[in-house]
Design a protein around this nucleic acid. Sequence first.
DNA 1: GCACTCCTTCTACAGCTGTAGTATCCGAAT
DNA 2: ATTCGGATACTACAGCTGTAGAAGGAGTGC
Lengths: 124, 124
Amino acid sequence: MTDGVKLSDQQYQLMQALWHLGEGSAKTVQTQLSHLGLAHTTVATILTRLEKKGVLISRTEGRERIFVPTVSEGEVRRSMVSSLVGTLFKGDDRQLLAHLVKESDLQQNDLDEIQKMLAEAGND
Amino acid sequence: MTDGVKLSDQQYQLMQALWHLGEGSAKTVQTQLSHLGLAHTTVATILTRLEKKGVLISRTEGRERIFVPTVSEGEVRRSMVSSLVGTLFKGDDRQLLAHLVKESDLQQNDLDEIQKMLAEAGND
DNA sequence: GCACTCCTTCTACAGCTGTAGTATCCGAAT
DNA sequence: ATTCGGATACTACAGCTGTAGAAGGAGTGC
């Protein structure tokens, strides 16, 4: 479904930590993201909001609350990319492709690689 | 520069109207976007905020205020795409390309077209 | 059992966005 | 000059995000 999950940068970071961990408490996540320098209460707040948003659920385990993603990173990526494509390119993925090809500083070997991918995609 | 212009959907719509028009008053923009059903005051508010944000400037002409974009659609696209790539793919454009190739429902002729583009890009 | 510690939940606030009503201002017509 | 009409500016409010302090609750060690 294009259920339109859309996360802010920060929110995505947190989810990413959870995707890597599989699951985890606010504390665990905060530790994992210590480079961001967020207070643990901040992390907890964001996680709570993400739960309200439906992208994760939590269970209480002893005195800890364990958060578990309910959507995969792939799903979120898909819907975020297609949302952007919707806004910027009238929903036409190919226009984004074209944009990337034009704007990216692609090296020849990148191109080769991509062409290989395209060739494989064509064989589906 | 990667000055990071980031617009919301709505804001992008308005800018798009201005890009098409070249320039225009709040009224003109609202008319152009009548399908969105926004009050003209709403359009004016958003335009004012966009000016504060620096993506357009305005000049007063008689009793009208004319808004003129200061950034091009291309620039905004570039920075929005690269912002998303930053968040979702650690800044690696090729990963977005790969994502698109995998996720998009590309037809063979799309692929041909893109491969042609890639070939051309390679000749720069 | 009691205090200590750790974790969570509640509350708070500022900034941004979506949305629009009301007030104001200024040019134009009479 | 006086009023009318249209355009803008000001104000408002709700919802979302970033951020975090303060308060509360529940193990754990003594």
